[in-house]
Structure formats: structure tokens, C-alpha cells
Design a protein around this nucleic acid. Structure first.
Lengths: 175, 175
DNA sequence: TAGCAGAATGTTAGTCTCTAACATTCCAGG
DNA sequence: CCTGGAATGTTAGAGACTAACATTCTGCTA
């Protein structure tokens, strides 16, 4: 990550990473399936599915996902150091990496879809709801990273999730 | 595209494509910057921005984007042949290509953001609105391709856009 | 019609990511 | 000590893409 931040993603070769780590190129690929994987090593969050499933089933699917994500983010502590910010900034400034975020989001999307269809929501509706909310969330994330100032990430995400809904609807969140 | 559909994207080499086209490998790269570019050669739609800008400025940004896209899709004729369906199916079944859709969506997202901020919407709000709506739309598109049956694409997209909004709000569309 | 300029295409050689097959070193337990 | 498995290394190669340079093709002019 240090090399990426310093010289850029494309400009850093796997050979250089391996050398900096005092290891052979082969060993690098045994730990990371691809060069991109170094950037996308986020732990995956199964809590999200549970929180979404817990939202009021009487609401439209989009609202349940939105309120669920909102609830999930309020309970998560702000773990954002410079490293995370650098990482997201790196991603935001690189079209190929930014697209790569979606390879990761897909797992989360599937998880959300599963949680929704399990409670009787139609498949298309579930997919659209998940895709829309993750789309808004990701846009906010990348937007946050592109800014020089240091506003809190969580606050920004919360704002984004609120912006996505009808005014006043946030009072229906189930923790 | 025929080779991709027949043997798969990863299994088809540029050398094979070039040979099938009766051309050298070098010439291939002079027409397509990357192998992926063969799949993503959609013409870009500047109409979208105009239609979105035309929506009622009193509504929240997400609603304006949503209703704008809805209006844009109703006016577009259904141009979906087998070729298009094959293409989308190919993308939907390949994680890397599916993520690549977002490299394309980015242009559209920027266009929408520009249209919104031009009428006084805040940048974050505009980005989130655009990201969310494109997220839902893309989810519907990929979901459509993954199905065996032949429901109309436009109908599917319309349904998706309606599902994203509050019930009854669609009456506010401005053509 | 000959010839010329520029566009299109080809050749060659190379870099870089990633894979596979096989060899080597390291380390814990018997 | 020594032995078996894990971690690491070496070598060779496929495949996407780039750069420098050579060649052919095409349309236009003298």
C-alpha cells in the first residue's frame, strides 16, 4: 500500500512489491491472488444482512435496505485511520480500481438479496433495492475520498443514506 | 463477440480474435484499447442529462434522477436483439466484466451530477442520487440477463425504476 | 498514367501480470 | 538427529498490452 500511494498503482510492479517485502514474486501471488487484491482486503460484514432482515416488513424493499444500512452504520465504530483514507483515495482516483469496488459489493449485494427474499420480497425488487442502496453508498464513499478536508466518514455515509430516502422516513429505523 | 459467446471471454485470446478477423494482433489493439472494450462499445446517451434537468426542481434529487431515467426509457425504442442479450448475459456471468460496467456508468454518473448541480443541488446529494439510481438500474439489467425467459428489457427497467420509488410518485414524471 | 503523401497494417521485441511444475529450505515433533 | 509437511524459491511459459520501426495500400495530383 505504501508503494501504491507513493508511486501509483500502475507504476508499481509486483516485482517491486515482492522486493520491498523481501520475498520472491511467486510468494506474493501465494498470498494475494491478484495485484488488485492488495487493495481490496476488506473483511466482509454478515451483520448487514441480519439488520436488514430486522427492518419493518411492511415497508418497501428499498426502504428496508436503506434503513438497515443506516442502522448498521450507526452501530459501527469509526475505524478510519490515514491508511484507510489513503486506500479509498487510491481507489477513487483510478477508474479500474473504482470499478473493482463492485466486484466486492457483489458479495454484499447477494447477502442483502438473500435476506430480503427470505422474508417474501420478490427477487427483482430485492436486487434493485440492494443495487440502488449500495450504489448510493459507494458514490458517497468515493466522493468522500476525493475531498481534501477531513470530515468524518461515518457522518458522510449517514448523510448519504438519509438523502436517498423520503424526508422524515428515518424515524422508522429498527436497530 | 461471437467467439466470446461461443468459448467464453477468458478462453478467447486476442490472437484468436485477430485471426478470425483476418488481421494482425497489433491491428486489433489499434481499434480496441483493451480486450474488454470489445464488449463495452455502447454509444453514450447525453439525452439523459437533459431529461433529468427537466424534472420538477422542487423534488428531492433522487426523485428527479429516478423520474428522469424513467422518462428517458419510455421514449427509447426497444432495440434489443439477440446480440445485445448475449452481450449482457456475457457480462452478467463474468465478475470482472460486470464490474467493468461501472467504468462505463461513471461517465453517465458524471453527466447526471453535472445536470443536477447546475440547477442548485449539492454535490454529495447529486452524486448519491446518481449512484443509487444507476445502481438499481444496473442491478435490474444484470438480473434480466441472468434469466432464461424473454421478458422485454424496457418493461423490466421500468419496473425496476418504479420499485425504487415511493408508491404513487410516478405520476410526477415530466417527459 | 506515374508518383507521391499519408493512412492503415504488419513485424519484432519487450514489459508486466499471472500460472504450473518442480526444487529447495525451514521447522516442529518423534 | 531426522523426518514430514509447510513455506518459499526457480524456471518456464501464456497472454495482454506497448513502442519503434518497416511495409503496403489508397486517393490525389502532376
Amino acid at each position: 500500500m505504501a508503494l501504491f500511494v507513493q508511486r501509483g498503482f500502475d507504476e508499481t510492479t509486483v516485482a517491486q512489491i515482492a522486493e520491498a517485502a523481501g520475498v520472491s514474486q511467486m510468494t506474493f501471488f501465494r498470498y494475494f491472488p491478484t495485484k488488485e487484491a492488495v487493495v481490496f482486503d476488506d473483511p466482509y460484514d454478515p451483520v448487514i444482512a441480519d439488520v436488514i432482515a430486522a427492518q419493518n416488513p411492511g415497508l418497501p424493499a428499498v426502504e428496508r435496505v436503506r434503513l438497515g444500512l443506516l442502522a448498521a452504520w450507526t452501530s459501527v465504530p469509526e475505524p478510519v485511520g490515514d491508511a484507510t483514507r489513503d486506500k479509498i483515495r487510491l481507489i477513487a482516483g483510478h477508474a479500474r480500481l473504482a470499478a473493482g469496488v463492485w466486484e466486492n459489493n457483489r458479495r454484499t449485494e447477494d447477502l442483502i438479496v438473500e435476506a430480503l427474499t427470505g422474508t417474501g420480497v420478490g427477487r427483482l425488487e430485492a436486487r434493485v433495492a440492494a443495487g440502488a442502496c449500495l450504489g448510493g453508498l459507494t458514490a458517497a464513499l468515493l466522493d468522500w475520498a476525493s475531498e481534501p478536508d477531513g470530515q468524518e466518514l461515518r457522518e458522510r455515509i449517514m448523510t448519504a443514506l438519509v438523502l436517498m430516502g423520503e424526508p422524515g422516513a428515518t424515524s422508522r429505523v429498527v436497530q
